[in-house]
Design a protein around this nucleic acid. Structure first.
Lengths: 211, 211
DNA sequence: GGTGTTACTGAATGGTTGGTAGATAATCAT
DNA sequence: ATGATTATCTACCAACCATTCAGTAACACC
């Protein structure tokens, strides 16, 4: 099955790159890295196999580009909030900022499900130490964990465990939501879960740093 | 790379089947169904490609056998507890039985990590509707969810959400534990998490069915 | 020790994979 | 128009994939 049945279109390289990355993230989110083929991505972009590899020389290079895009979007969305929430690292974070940050963590999924699915899928697939994204996700998870720890410090007696629980909950809920037999509202369920795990966050009393 | 360099060994079919299933679960737990090859499994079992398929005629048939084994072990471990915990469905479950059941859910992982890894891996990979295990895991998750709902009813004001949170937590914690950069004690963390999500379960007051 | 059953092998199947080389056509600068 | 650049194509490759089939050797029983 070749592409020549259609007229050859020559796309602006910037646009094509963006298209490849977007569709690639969609495909890997669906089938994982192992279940994903260069051919399938090329077809979906309306170009040939070789045409695709003209931009990204190999399957691994494609994966790296997708991961970079994930990191870029993450940073773009979270960085300002994290900066405000963690601040100098000493001062306790303002509760409203923590709440905003936690909300954002969930809305990332509802606002771009394809990227969320991509992250969930690869994070699981890359448990395998020989997976090309293993190290990447290892460091990503470590960073996320540390971020959560400093976020909940002062709001819970055991920040390590609470942080771990929050990370676990977000992943687990997202996975349920993606399978979505009888779909549910992810943001509402996430808020309920955070309330259960971190009740101090929503208490009205002004003696905030107790517990 | 063929097998003939060694003397041909003829194994008891029952033993060989068990070996194939065990090693297969190990391999899929590592690389997922898509990243797993019939050749690799055969090699690891010390037989040829064709020798493997003499037992299970196709890659899909292998997967079904592995899933059946997962279900078998699950049932063997959980069924007596579930029966005691749910009972007739009307009577509220005794708290000690619920606690025991929740503990078992976690110790499954620590006691046979390979099977746990297999379940986690496939559950994620099978989010894809075209994955051969998609339907299987859909019904499995539904059943687990319903089980948890009837388990926590009477112990929490919102059984649906609490059940969802417990399922999410178990999956999320297990995934963190499997990646295990700085490993942690899964059973302890699970107990902490359950305590946070379901505090009524561990309260000493005897007016158990409140909240 | 011969015979039957069956666990297993080697070799070959056709299809798919990621990747390469050289040709070609669309666009741009002049 | 013309020529240079480059995005994309066709054609091809070797490796790998799951699966098939005709044999072969290990064992059980007599």
């Amino acid at each position: 099955m070749n592409v020549s049945s259609r007229i050859r279109v020559r796309e602006d390289p910037v646009v094509r790159r963006a298209q490849i990355i977007e569709e690639g993230i969609r495909l890997i989110g669906l089938h994982g890295y192992n279940g994903f083929t260069v051919q399938a991505l090329a077809t979906r972009c309306g170009i040939s196999n070789a045409g695709l590899l003209y931009y990204f020389g190999s399957k691994d290079a494609l994966l790296l580009a997708f991961l970079a895009e994930l990191e870029r979007q993450d940073r773009e969305l979270l960085e300002p909030l994290v900066a405000r929430a963690i601040g100098r690292g000493d001062a306790p974070s303002s509760r409203t900022v923590v709440i905003a940050l936690l909300r954002t963590v969930a809305s990332r999924f509802t606002e771009s499900p394809a990227l969320g699915r991509f992250a969930v899928m690869l994070q699981c697939e890359s448990i395998d130490p020989s997976h090309p994204a293993h190290d990447w996700f290892l460091s990503r998870e470590t960073m996320a964990f540390d971020m959560f720890v400093s976020l909940v410090t002062g709001l819970t007696p055991d920040p390590q465990s609470t942080a771990r629980q929050l990370v676990a909950l977000m992943n687990g809920l997202a996975q349920q939501w993606l399978r979505a037999d009888r779909p549910f509202d992810l943001e509402i369920e996430w808020e309920k879960a955070v309330t259960a795990i971190l009740p101090a966050l929503f208490e009205d009393e002004s003696d905030s740093n107790r517990i």
